[in-house]
């Protein structure tokens, strides 16, 4: 049991830092607002968030929280299921808006 716990803790730490600081903040938003069935810190970057249990209503809260967290506004054409389908996809969208 102890080994399993520490394995999960290690996965959590590794997951949290995969993809840099932005990805960590995205995971934090998902953890707080995504209503996922697993921890956002244990998900792969490209894991499908909808398959992980994020409902469409929860995804709107995630969008809202991301706008607050990164001080950005997603234009309407980015408010699309596919843009918010994985941590990597969200990271790319955030990067695009921050770089613009």
């Amino acid at each position: 049991m102890q080994t399993a716990t520490s394995d999960s803790a290690i996965r959590k730490i590794q997951g949290a830092f995969t993809g840099g600081h932005d990805a960590f903040r995205i995971r934090q938003v998902l953890q707080n607002h995504g209503r996922l069935s697993t921890s956002a810190f244990e998900l792969a970057e490209d894991a499908d968030l909808y398959e992980a249990g994020m409902s469409s209503l929860a995804s709107v809260n995630v969008m809202l929280a991301l706008e607050g967290e990164f001080n950005i506004e997603f234009p309407d054409q980015m408010l699309n299921r596919s843009v918010f389908s994985s941590i990597a996809a969200i990271g790319a969208a955030v990067k695009q808006l921050n770089g613009a």
Binding site: S56, L57, V60, N61, M63, L64, E67, E73, F74, P75, D76, Q77, L79
Partner: peptide, 16 residues
């Protein structure tokens, strides 16, 4: 209620 939640992020920037 669903529309209200969506309008928190939707900007109608293309008058869609």
């Amino acid at each position: 209620a669903k529309s209200a939640a969506m309008l928190m992020v939707f900007k109608a920037d293309q008058a869609a």
